[in-house]
Simulated assay, not measured.
Amino acid sequence: MSIKVIIMDVDGTLTNTNKVITPLTKQTLLKAEEQGAILILASGRPTSGLLDIAKELEMHKHHGLLVSYNGSKVIDCETMETLFNQALSVEEGKAVLEHMKKFDKVRPMIDKGEYMYVNNVYDNMIMFNGAPFDVIQYESRGGKFKLCEIDDLAEFVDFELNKILTTSDPEYLQSHYEEMMEPFRDKLSCMFTGPFYFEFTAPGIDKAKALDTVLIPMGYKKEEMIAFGDGHNDASMVNYAGIGVAMANAVQDLKDIADEVTLSNDEDGIAVTLEKYMN
Rank of each mutant, 00 (worst) to 15 (best):
P23Y: 09
T79H: 12
E56I: 06
I40D: 01
G36D: 03
N16L: 07
H60Q: 14
Y122L: 13
T47Q: 03
M8W: 02
K31A: 13
G44H: 04
L51I: 06
D76K: 02
G12F: 00
I53N: 02
I40L: 05
E56H: 13
E81N: 12
R107M: 14
T47D: 06
N119V: 02
L29T: 07
E98Q: 12
G44P: 02
M59T: 01
V96L: 10
T17E: 08
M116A: 12
I38G: 03
Y115F: 15
S48D: 07
D76W: 03
A32M: 08
S48M: 08
T13S: 12
L50E: 01
L24A: 09
K94D: 09
D104R: 11
D11H: 07
D76P: 10
H63M: 09
D52M: 10
G12H: 03
E92A: 08
M59N: 04
K19G: 05
T17H: 14
R107Y: 14
K55H: 15
G64D: 03
V67I: 14
V121G: 14
N119M: 04
G36A: 12
D52A: 13
L88E: 01
S89H: 09
I38F: 06
V10D: 00
Q27V: 08
E92N: 05
F84L: 04
Y69M: 00
V90E: 04
N18G: 06
L51F: 09
E33H: 07
I53M: 13
S68Q: 04
L41R: 00
M100Q: 09
E98C: 08
M59F: 05
G93F: 03
K61D: 14
C77Y: 01
I21Y: 02
C77Q: 01
V106N: 00
